[in-house]
Simulated scan of single mutants.
Amino acid sequence: GLYCISVNCMDNAEAQFTTALRLTTHQELWTFIVTNLASVYIREGNRHQELYSLLERINPDHNFPVRRFLRETLKMSNAEDLNRLTACSLVLLGHIFYVLGNHRESNNMVVPAMQLASKIPDMSVQLWSSALLRDLNKACGNTIDAHEAAQMHQNFSQQLLQDHIEACSLPEHNLTTWTDGSPPVQFQAQNGPTTSLASLL
């Protein structure tokens, strides 16, 4: 499911997460799966009913303090030196502040997110950050900075597109359609026999 998200196969991601939800009895894994399924619905943009239904399963009383949880995640990831988690939390908070119209706070989140993502390096977070920077600078009337952020976004997009094309051409990409039965791919071990994924599980 996570790989499906990374290559924008949202229908496949949804199918895999839904299957995983059906098969798991472990509470932490269930929460992880639900969170990722929610991200699929959010990314698709037109899945509000499914998202609300899913969020209700997480917290039926609708008391879902997202910003507080994100800030806690940010504190924990900083304490544990989890750079990607920190960068993602910062850019997500930046996006929330942007949507709420608080451009100064949004900028205070997205600039360090971009800097951290550049150090890791994490091109997906850089792409997300540069898109937010572009939109933020446009909204603030900073046309030069908006143009610069748009150019960064374009560069990251091109690189990620190339990576996407390469990943989709690999035989392992066939796992995106797997929700039942034996895995649809065989692995060739270096200097060894072909191994099915099922034997590795």
Rank of each mutant, 00 (worst) to 15 (best):
N12M: 04
A15G: 11
A15L: 03
T19L: 07
A20W: 03
R22A: 07
Q27L: 07
W30V: 05
N36H: 10
A38R: 05
A38K: 08
V40N: 03
I42H: 04
R43V: 10
G45C: 04
R47H: 10
R47Y: 09
H48Y: 09
Q49E: 15
Y52H: 11
N59A: 14
P60V: 08
F64Q: 09
P65E: 10
P65R: 01
R67Y: 04
S77M: 08
N78K: 14
L82Q: 14
R84I: 13
L93T: 14
G101F: 05
G101A: 06
H103P: 00
E105C: 11
N107G: 11
V111N: 02
L116E: 03
A117Q: 05
S118D: 02
K119C: 05
P121C: 02
L127Q: 02
W128S: 05
W128G: 00
S129P: 07
N137G: 01
C140H: 01
T143M: 13
H153M: 06
F156Y: 07
Q158E: 14
D163S: 12
H164D: 13
I165T: 11
A167K: 10
S169R: 14
P171G: 02
H173M: 08
N174I: 13
T179C: 00
T179Y: 03
D180E: 12
G181H: 03
F187E: 08
A189M: 15
Q190G: 11
T195W: 15
T195D: 08
L197D: 12
A198K: 05
S199V: 13
L201C: 08
